[in-house]
């Protein structure tokens, strides 16, 4: 097989595989997207919930640290 012919076949195969993977990715997203679903919601509540969760973790670690320092 000639070098150019071999390169052509390899390029074609690579184009086919890469394009096929790209399309299948997009179709999976479209399949999952229901007509009633909403994408990319940004909410005020989500932020406040995240902040509250962070505070809880800080308190417990501080208490443990205090106890440790008293014991030591």
């Amino acid at each position: 097989m000639k070098f150019r012919k071999m390169i052509t076949y390899m390029l074609f195969l690579a184009f086919f595989l890469l394009s096929g993977m790209e399309l299948s990715r997009k179709w999976m997203v479209s399949l999952e997207r229901d007509t009633a679903s909403v994408r990319y919601v940004r909410s005020l509540e989500i932020e406040t919930v995240q902040k509250k969760e962070k505070k809880k973790i800080d308190y417990s670690s501080l208490l443990n640290a205090n106890k440790m320092s008293k014991d030591g």
């Binding site: 150019r4 390169i7 052509t8 390029l11 074609f12 690579a14 184009f15 086919f16 890469l18 394009s19 993977m21 790209e22 990715r25």
Partner: peptide, 27 residues
């Protein structure tokens, strides 16, 4: 674009040095 399209672009650029207009002619 995605990482796959990036790979495809690089492949076409390199392929263009070996065969004329590979994307146009093949796919």
């Amino acid at each position: 674009g995605s990482d796959l399209l990036f790979a495809l672009t690089i492949l076409i650029v390199i392929g263009s040095l070996v065969v004329k207009r590979p994307w146009c002619r093949l796919f």
